[in-house]
Design a binder for these strands. Structure first.
Length: 831
RNA sequence: GGGCGAGUGGCGGAACGGCAUACGCGACGGACUUAAAAUCCGUUGCCGAAAGGCUUGAGGGUUCAAAUCCCUCCUCGCCCACCA
């Protein structure tokens, strides 16, 4: 008997078999089976793949194989998020052209996925850096442009001085570049944006539909959109025509506004201070604030500072003139970039007013303990009764909020509105390795979109791509110089490229018709196959990719290209795999390479351990000992098949199991409990770790049942063992597909185990139920826990009355009343 | 500061009102071996010689019964945060 199972010969054999069998090649036109779209987030082709990356693909593969066995028509595609900075940065360091290194990395990852036993429909592979793909990313840009959802504006934007490019708001983490952690500064630049804010309300509202998404991700998206309801109030500027509008969520405090503040970037500021006598001072202040890294400006303990503009504005409700200031604590991007300051009831305004000696006026008070503006130590932000607020005096502030808002709307002083934290998606990048933005600039016609028929705008390959702060494409004359399609005059191409998140916001549509040269996707097909049934990926995409994809799909829906407006029905976010307390990374030197492990233990071991390591949605610490444990289990399964075969328990049988002794009944019960448990763990939230644990228990049980090697097996024992083992192999198949196929064929079964159907359990085999027995003796309650009993009431009663500890309680008395709730509770009333 | 989640053996974790510590790792003992590895069998929450007692971050509550539900607190993780 071989002690170690021959994974080195088994695994390549079955990998080739699956390819020959076209196991994962799906016919998307079939309607006789229910479709199942199982999607893993398409990978960035990086050079060093580690076991942490594998978790994603292994989970996806287990789900796809399981659904195949459940009779679904399974679509499991893969592609490459192939544009992006790392390849370009590597090229700058003197390596290969990004195109070459990307293609090399793709080849390596393909080999690794195959060795993992992870299967896809490779005919549907898409690669984001190929012109036949990015042509359609550009097409999407044009569609947004047509609907005015793509626009160019000069704005204060996030700039990473290390990556030498602008970043989207979503790519700034704690004031630093999410990629290189360089503090982000603000720059005034003219850039392309997608108007995602137009969809803020729908993106927020539809989160409610995403009931099969992790709550954590839904909360993160809600926070990110950050809706606040309030009132936009127009304050006339004293001596100037155009009023200034501010946004507040606390309109109840309007009578306490003692000054107004503008953000340093406020568009009206320059015009207002043109003739100010302290123009120089203001200018200096504004410039100093804008130069600060974002990290510094938004840090927790930044002191508030500001300058008086020389202007006054008029509070519309009482006609009072209040001074207009500019200060560092007001953000342009939120609300209107202008704030009515109520020092008595807002901590920030309070601090600012104290510092600059601005008046503090209480308008919400607590009658039993009135506030004194002179001695207050902090702003009063609790609820209270309205004071100094003219006709609203005496009302509760909650109620007043409603009334004042209504009053202001009626008088045209303001309107109810919402402010969102979400900002428009900045998609320009001053980098080389991305899809060119399909726009050109003509002296005569201005901004001209590239006509659809001229797509793709090809990315030139022969370019020096060292970042200079401007796109490297600028220095490729043959790219930049072009003719205007409208007037045929001279034109210049836009030389910025698109954020790679544009590429990844629609790839799941392309998989349905990856070769279609006429259209980005086939509307009828995507309508049949989407939303994606199961999306699997890392939680690091909870905001970026998932929000952008939802946005693009909603836009495509509104344009009539797709019939659904949410792309992902179910989302699963797997946890990270940690080594020595850190995320695996080359620089930390804690990378566990899958190639080595597969060489030593085989792919099934790596798969099984990855799935057994812990709850898949949680982070988990990698342990080399744990891998050995998984390997040990596989060998136990392998030896079991040899042992059973040797003892004649694997010959095909026709008779059904009968005449089992107590151990046999118990093993059969365990078998069907395992079938039940594994199936339940596969459905709903994925509990692979407990599914595997229960299969380990079954294996242990079978070994115990087999007993001594000398013992000859009876006919009925052999039949039972054959049944148990065969069903076990079916359960194991999605997890350890190579070994399962090998054993399946050794059982004399023809064809792939994945063409067999997933077994269902026999309820009769588990027809022993656990019941809680509560006995009330003379009104006093005693209980006994979980007695295993048969279902019939008579047998149940007999068993209970014969139970030793219950007899003790009954103490010779008779049962007056039985209350039996099937499977739950037995209540005995005894006098 | 606001929101969400979590705290269980030496470790990863299971149970999610009904036998706490399944399964795995590690450790210990034994078999096999000249020996080691591998493999197999057994033991393994804590205290105690044993009988027995104690145990799910701390404290309280509900219940016949609480790791699980409720309240207070502590600790950790994540998200948002000068957001008006």
């Amino acid at each position: 008997m071989e002690e170690i199972y021959p994974f080195r010969t088994i695994e390549p054999k079955w990998q080739s078999f699956w390819e020959k069998e076209r196991l994962f090649e799906v016919d998307t036109s079939r309607t006789d089976k229910t479709k199942y779209y199982c999607l893993v987030m398409f990978p960035y082709p990086s050079a060093t793949l580690h076991v942490g990356h594998g978790r994603n693909y292994i989970i996806g593969d287990v789900v796809a194989r399981y659904k195949l066995m459940r009779g679904f028509n399974v679509l499991a595609p893969i592609g490459w998020d192939a544009f992006g900075l790392p390849a370009e940065n590597a090229a700058i360091k003197g390596g290969l052209h990004p195109k070459i290194s990307t293609l090399n990395n793709i080849a390596t990852m393909k080999r690794q996925l195959r060795q993992w036993g992870v299967c896809y429909d490779w005919r549907r592979e898409v690669t984001a850096c190929f012109p036949d793909y990015y042509k359609w990313s550009q097409w999407i840009f044009l569609k947004l442009y047509e609907k005015s959802l793509a626009y160019k504006k000069r704005a204060a934007v996030n700039w990473c001085s290390s990556c030498q490019t602008v970043l989207a708001n979503e790519q700034v983490v704690n004031g630093a570049c999410e990629r290189c952690e360089t503090p982000v500064i603000q720059k005034f630049l003219e850039q392309w944006f997608f108007k995602i804010t137009d969809y803020a309300e729908r993106l927020l509202k539809d989160i409610a539909q995403l009931t099969h998404w992790p709550e954590r991700v839904r909360v993160m998206q809600r926070n990110w959109i950050g809706k606040n309801e309030g009132v936009a109030i127009h304050f006339p500027v004293d001596g100037e025509g155009e009023p200034l509008t501010c946004f507040t969520t606390r309109v109840d405090t309007i009578y306490g506004a003692t000054y107004m503040v503008l953000a340093p970037e406020h568009p009206r500021l320059q015009e207002l201070i043109r003739d100010s006598k302290n123009k120089g001072e203001i200018q200096q202040f504004v410039e100093r604030i804008l130069r600060q890294p974002q990290e510094e400006r938004s840090a927790l303990e930044v002191k508030k500072e500001g300058v008086f503009t020389g202007w006054h504005v008029v509070n519309p409700v009482n006609g009072r003139k209040i001074p207009l200031w500019v200060a560092n604590y007001v953000l342009l991007e939120y609300g209107t970039g202008a704030v009515m300051a109520v020092p008595a009831h807002d901590q920030r305004d309070f601090e600012f007013a104290k510092k600059y000696g601005l008046p503090i006026e209480v308008v919400i008070d607590q009658p039993e303990n009135p506030l004194n503006p002179l001695t207050m130590k902090e702003a009063y932000i609790e609820e209270g009764i309205m004071v100094h607020s003219e006709l609203f005096n005496g009302l509760g502030n909650r109620e007043a909020m409603e009334k004042i808002a209504h009053f202001m709307e009626k008088k045209g002083m303001g309107r109810r509105t919402s402010a969102y934290r979400l900002r428009d998606w900045l998609i320009s990048r001053q980098r080389y390795w991305g899809a060119p933005i399909p726009i050109l600039y003509c002296n005569a016609c201005g901004i001209v979109p590239v006509p659809e028929k001229d797509l793709p705008v090809l990315l030139p390959e022969n370019v020096r791509f060292r970042p200079t702060g401007e796109s490297p494409l600028k220095d490729a004359p043959e790219f930049v110089k072009t003719r205007c399609p409208k007037c045929k005059g001279e034109g210049k191409r836009e030389f910025d490229t698109m954020d790679t998140f544009v590429d990844s916001s629609w790839y799941f549509l392309r998989y349905l018709s990856p070769q279609n040269a006429e259209r980005p996707f086939d509307t009828a097909l995507v309508n049949r196959w989407l939303p994606v049934d199961q999306y699997i990926g890392g939680v690091e995409h909870a905001i970026l990719h998932l929000l952008y994809s939802r946005f693009i799909v909603k836009v495509l829906h509104d344009l009539g290209y797709v019939g659904f407006d949410e792309p992902f029905e179910r989302l699963f976010t797997q946890g990270m795999i940690i080594k020595d307390g850190f995320k695996m990374s080359k620089s930390k030197g804690n990378v566990v390479s899958p190639d080595e492990l597969i060489e030593r233990f085989g792919a099934d071991t790596v798969r099984l351990y990855t799935l057994f390591i812990g709850p898949p949605e949680k982070d988990a610490e990698w342990s080399d000992r744990g891998v050995e444990g998984a390997f040990r289990f596989l060998n136990r399964v392998w030896r079991l098949s040899q042992l059973l075969s040797k003892r004649g328990a694997l010959v095909p049988v026709s008779s059904a199991v009968s005449g089992l002794n107590e151990e046999g009944v118990s093993l059969r019960r365990k078998l069907h409990l395992t079938l039940k448990k594994v199936t339940e763990d596969m459905e709903g939230s994925f509990r692979f770790n407990t599914a595997i644990a229960s299969m380990m228990e079954l294996v242990n049980e079978i070994y115990r049942y087999l007993g001594e090697e000398e013992k000859t097996l009876q006919e009925n024992e052999r039949v039972l063992l054959r049944e148990a083992f065969e069903l076990l192999v079916l359960l194991l198949a999605p997890f350890i597909p190579h070994l399962a196929e090998e054993i399946w064929s050794s059982l004399g079964r023809k064809g792939s185990v994945f063409r067999a159907s997933w077994p269902s359990y026999d309820p009769n085999a588990i027809a022993v139920e656990e019941v809680t027995i509560v006995i009330q003796v003379n009104g006093k309650v005693r209980s006994k826990l979980n007695v295993a009993v048969d279902l019939s009431d008579e047998l149940l009663k007999e068993k209970i009355l014969n139970d030793e500890s219950i007899r003790k309680w009954l103490d010779g008395k008779t049962v007056k009343q039985w209350v039996i709730v099937p499977k739950k509770l037995v209540n005995l009333v005894v006098t």
